[in-house]
């Protein structure tokens, strides 16, 4: 565990707290993509299947359970909560997320480091996480004025990915046996997807005005 990894995980956790806070406190999920949230739920389920048969550390196990729980809570609020579900902008959330799932599955079957059931599902979760933010980014463009909490949620997610890249560089230069090409390539693509958002987020923040993605 190094400072970049810990900061990355805590930023990820904070992003989920911000999103849940927005939903619970404002009783609204305006501007939030249910498709992205459902993709994250799929990502966590397929990646953290190893909770059942491998143990890394108490930290890892607790975080996995927290991420799973928060992902399913968010999906529950957006789809089933009697007040919140009416604030979901269905007509703005039109990205065909099934293509992302199918594409990630095909890629995971073609490119993986071991052709076993759990390894393919794990690889699928890596590929799917890389693109899971796309429905949310497209929705932000369509939403117009983006509220602070939603903007901060996406910003924190992007920060988390950036910190993970620093973590990989650090680990590669300090650990003798560390290597994970599939994770690195997917992670760099994932982080690059945030570039546009970061540009407008920082620009609007700097000019002290409400976030709008043109």
């Amino acid at each position: 565990m190094n400072v970049f990894r810990l900061a990355g995980d805590l930023t990820h956790l904070l992003s989920l707290v911000v999103l849940l806070l927005k939903i619970v406190a404002t009783k609204s999920c305006r501007g939030v993509s249910a498709k992205t949230q459902e993709l994250y739920a799929i990502v966590f389920v397929t990646r953290y299947l190893d909770l059942l048969f491998s143990f890394v550390s108490l930290y890892n196990s607790v975080m996995k359970v927290v991420f799973l729980g928060s992902a399913f809570s968010i999906v529950y609020f957006m789809r089933y909560h009697k007040v919140v579900r009416h604030t979901y902008d269905r007509e703005l959330d039109t990205f065909r997320s099934s293509f992302l799932v199918a594409g990630s599955m095909v890629l995971a079957l073609l490119i993986n480091s071991k052709y076993t059931f759990f390894e393919v599902l794990w690889t699928f979760s890596i590929y799917l996480e890389a693109v899971a933010i796309l429905p949310q980014l497209v929705m932000l463009q369509r939403t117009g004025n983006i509220d602070n909490l939603t903007g901060n949620y996406v910003f924190l997610l992007g920060m988390y990915r950036g910190l993970y890249i620093l973590n990989w560089i650090y680990r590669y230069s300090t650990e003798r046996r560390y290597w994970q090409m599939i994770v690195w390539v997917s992670g760099i693509i994932q982080t690059a997807l945030y570039a546009d958002f970061f540009y407008y987020y920082l620009k609007c923040w700097n000019e002290n005005r409400t976030l709008v993605i043109p």
């Binding site: 190893d50 890394v56 890892n60 975080m63 991420f67 046996r177 290597w179 994970q180 599939i182």
Partner: peptide, 10 residues
Amino acid sequence: ESRGEMKDEL
């Protein structure tokens, strides 16, 4: 010793 994949990240 070669570098190997490790699944100790989240």
